[in-house]
C-alpha cells in the first residue's frame, strides 16, 4: 500500500475511534453517581436547593438531548461550562495546558537525548560493567513509583541543598519566567522515569538490529564500525525507539497526576485529580477527551513517522 493512502486510512480510523470514545466517555461520566449540583452545594445541599440548581443548569434534560448539545458545542470548539468553577472549561484548561506542555517539554528535553545516547552506548558495549550499570539504573528507575523518586529529589534538592523550590506556590496563569524555577523538580522526576523507558527500548532495538544479516554483511564488507552504526544500524533501530518516545511524550502530557499533586504543580494532571474529587463533570469530560486525543494523535504520528523513517517502507518493499 502506498504511504499517502495508508496515512489517510489511519487518520480516518483515528478520527473514528476518537468520536466513538467521545460518546462513550460522555455516557460513562453520565452514568457515574453524583453530579455537578451535589458537588457544588456540598454540606448545604437540601432537596429544594438541589432541584433548583439542576433546573438552572439544565441537568434535568434527557441524556440524549444533552449529548447532542454537547457534541454540537464540541464541534464548534466549545468544551462546555464548569458549574463548579463558574467558568468556561476552555478558559480553565488553557493556562494549565501551557504549564503541562512546559513540564512535558522540559522533561522530554532532559530525558530523550540522554536516553538515546546511553541506550546506544549500552547496546554496543554489551556485557561490560558500565553497560550493565546503565541497564540496572534504568531498571531501578523504571521500578520506583514516581512519588518515591519525587520525595527523594525534594529532600535532596529543596531541603538539604536548597537550590530548587520544592512546591509550586504560583497561580496557573503565572508567566513562564515566574513558573520556570518550579518546573525543574517535577520535570527531573518525570525525566528520570521516561529516560529509563526510552533508554531500554533504544538499547533493545540497537541490539536486535545489530545482529540482522544486512548489518553483518556490511561488517564483512569491511565497513568501519562507526559507519556501520550510523548508516546501517541507526536507521533501522530508530523507528521502534521513536514509537516509544511518542507514547512517552503523550504520557508526559496526560499521565502526570501523581507528580503534579506531589509538587502542587498547576498543570492538567492536578486539575484532573481536583476535578474528579470535585465531581466537576464537564471538566472531567473535557480532560478525558483531551487525554484520548493526545494518545490517539501520538500513535498516529508515531505510526506515520515510523513508516517514513523505515528504509524498507521508503524503498517500497512494504512492512
Amino acid at each position: 500500500m502506498n504511504t499517502a493512502l495508508h496515512v489517510l486510512r489511519r487518520a480516518l480510523l483515528a478520527i473514528g475511534v476518537f468520536a466513538a470514545m467521545a460518546v462513550l466517555t460522555f455516557l460513562g461520566v453520565e452514568a457515574l453517581p453524583g453530579d455537578a449540583c451535589t458537588s457544588l452545594l456540598g454540606r448545604a445541599a437540601t432537596p429544594e436547593k438541589l432541584a433548583q440548581c439542576r433546573e438552572e443548569n439544565g441537568l434535568n434534560e434527557p441524556v440524549l438531548s444533552r449529548l447532542g448539545d454537547w457534541a454540537g458545542d464540541l464541534l464548534h470548539g466549545d468544551l462546555g461550562y464548569s458549574i463548579k468553577r463558574s467558568a468556561p472549561v476552555g478558559e480553565i484548561i488553557a493556562p494549565r495546558l501551557r504549564n503541562s506542555l512546559l513540564l512535558a517539554g522540559v522533561a522530554a528535553l532532559l530525558a530523550f537525548p540522554t536516553a538515546v545516547v546511553l541506550g546506544m552506548y549500552s547496546a554496543r558495549r554489551r556485557g561490560t560493567k558500565r553497560a550493565r550499570a546503565i541497564d540496572t539504573t534504568g531498571l531501578v528507575l523504571m521500578t520506583l513509583p514516581e512519588f518515591v523518586t519525587a520525595s527523594v529529589l525534594w529532600l535532596v534538592l529543596s531541603i538539604w541543598l536548597p537550590i530548587l523550590p520544592g512546591v509550586t506556590v504560583l497561580p496557573s496563569n503565572a508567566t513562564i519566567a515566574e513558573i520556570m524555577p518550579s518546573v525543574w523538580l517535577p520535570a527531573i522526576t518525570l525525566a528520570l522515569l521516561v529516560f529509563a523507558h526510552v533508554m531500554r527500548s533504544m538499547r533493545a532495538s540497537v541490539v536486535a538490529t545489530s545482529s540482522r544479516p544486512f548489518v553483518d554483511a556490511a561488517r564483512y564488507r569491511g565497513v568501519q564500525e562507526r559507519t556501520v552504526m550510523r548508516r546501517h544500524v541507526m536507521p533501522a533501530a530508530l523507528p521502534p525507539a521513536v514509537n516509544v518516545m511518542a507514547v512517552t511524550a503523550a504520557w508526559l502530557l496526560t499521565g502526570t497526576f501523581v507528580v503534579e499533586v506531589v509538587f502542587n504543580y498547576p498543570g492538567l494532571g492536578r486539575l484532573a485529580v481536583d476535578a474528579i474529587s470535585d465531581r466537576d463533570t464537564s471538566l472531567i469530560l473535557a480532560l478525558t477527551l483531551f487525554g484520548l486525543a493526545v494518545f490517539i494523535l501520538s500513535s498516529f504520528i508515531s505510526d506515520t513517522v515510523t513508516r517514513m523513517l523505515d528504509p524498507r517502507v521508503r524503498a517500497g518493499l512494504g512492512a
Partner: peptide, 23 residues
C-alpha cells in the same frame, strides 16, 4: 481489534481514579 485499540487508548490511571472515586 478496533475495540481493542479504543481500550488501549484510555488513560488507565485516569479511568482507575474515576472508577474508584465514583463507583
Amino acid at each position: 481489534m478496533r475495540v481493542n485499540d479504543v481500550l488501549l487508548a484510555l488513560p488507565s490511571l485516569l479511568v482507575l481514579l474515576l472508577v474508584a472515586s465514583f463507583i
